[in-house]
Design a protein around this nucleic acid. Structure first.
Lengths: 257, 257
DNA sequence: TCAAAAGTGTTGCAAATACACCCATGG
DNA sequence: CCATGGGTGTATTTGCAACACTTTTGA
């Protein structure tokens, strides 16, 4: 029987799903890094760090953003996702993951060599049964399992490859993340923080689109406005040089309340 | 500057909010224990334990149920609440809390002396701005703060007393718990597991009542049935010896799917 | 056969959807 | 002045809340 000392404690990882929005392609993006250490060497993964003694998990999540992409943010852009503690999630020594999500107000260009071998933005898309994140030929999908037990049972016997699968249980974590964001779309759409301080209704619909698995032009602007009126407050009018009436810009009503 | 060794790791507490339903009083209850060690000696608190290396957090939560009330359960009765990592939450050494909720299928009688000085069931009630848990003259309320920052700011300067306040940040954790359950009432009411394997619509309304802060006879049975039809499946008819038509009994449709 | 408890049905209001129409801007 | 993009208005549909009514049981 294993000795169980109270002072023996598992590792605590902070896993951060960093979201941004690409104004050029009008797509939602997440940051993935290529691991250069064991386990899962050379696999793509969600950014992770160890938690330090003197910081809270939220602070650790923001430190990770600073380390990976050199951006300093207030914690109003970070939210807790969940904690992953399944014994099967790490191959050898036990490690918990405290998962957070950070919404960047814009999509910064990535400097190479910030600790990881490689870091890239992956644009969000979807299939019938999962969400998809791709960059060129690289593409990863969220888990199609609907409950945790099923996922880890299969996961344990799965010999995954770095071209097709993410490290650890990150395909599961990413599924939980997407589901959570989708569920909050109608009452607390923090995901819209990826649009920066203000946005047009069309911007918002472009962000909603992949989560709802609905093309943007199938989301009726009139109805979208009515049903989200209580969440947005108008702050002015956009002034861009293109044909058509300029759109109003809004901000999230519940931020800084 | 503080030394930050990767091997230095914070303590990991499992905090479990254990819910039950009292068939005699028709009230929702939670378990609180009176602490007999420092810090917060002699304060009432949510049941806690240290996480062991070889178990998942869910398993630790169930072990806690076993230790405190001698009941063995499958993990379908346990669900993750959130993780509390604020630096101010413990007075000296840093401790995270992974909070879980367990729904007991009945309300067991408590044997004295299961590790804690005292353990008692507290019946749920409500005020305008909080939820209330009482046992005789003892009564505790959930935090009235609506965001985490506000709570911990006040908490740090608060010299609380064991007659009126719970240990640590447990009034905050309990607030998050009640809010979560309330939010899930219309799409995944796991709280109904406190009613056991099956229940009548009236039973269900009695459980909903404190979370909705609405007296049971103000929850219209006809409308309640219609709006929750998709969550319940009929399994038979109750046979009790009292006047009036026997009620149908239902089970949760989404359990064991 | 009456009271109590539970289930069913009906109506009115309010929110959500589909879609037609009006407005502002650039070329 | 027309094409383009965006905002506004309206009719229809759907869902929810209030409440009256019917059914089943014990005494």
């Amino acid at each position: 029987m294993a000795t169980s000392n109270i002072l023996e404690r598992p590792f605590i990882n902070i896993t951060n799903i960093i979201w941004s929005f690409d104004r050029a392609t009008n797509q939602v993006n997440i940051l993935l890094v290529k691991r250069d250490n064991s386990p899962y060497n050379q696999f793509w993964a969600l950014p992770e760090t160890f938690m330090r003694l003197q910081e809270s998990a939220d602070e650790a999540a923001l430190r990770l953003v600073k380390e990976k992409i050199g951006m300093e943010l207030s914690n109003s852009h970070t939210e807790q996702l969940a904690t992953f503690t399944n014994k099967l999630r790490t191959p050898k020594s036990r490690a918990l993951s405290l998962a957070y999500m950070t919404f960047l107000p814009d999509k910064p260009h990535l400097e190479p060599g910030y600790g990881a071998v490689d870091a890239k933005w992956f644009a969000m898309g979807y299939t019938d049964s999962s969400y998809r994140f791709s960059n060129g030929l690289l593409a990863f999908q969220t888990s199609e399992c609907s409950n945790e037990g099923d996922y880890y049972d299969r996961f344990a016997h799965n010999e995954s490859k770095p071209e097709t699968h993410l490290a650890f249980d990150h395909e599961w974590i990413l599924k939980i993340a997407c589901d959570r964001i989708k569920n909050k779309l109608d009452y607390q759409p923090n995901i819209l923080l990826v649009l920066g301080a203000s946005f047009t209704l069309k911007d918002a619909r472009m962000v909603y689109s992949p989560f709802l698995k609905t093309p943007i032009n199938q989301i009726d602007n009139s109805n979208f406005k009515k049903s989200h009126r209580h969440l947005f407050t108008a702050v002015g009018t956009s002034a861009d040089n293109r044909p058509g009436r300029p759109a109003r810009v809004y901000k999230l009503a519940f931020i800084g309340a």
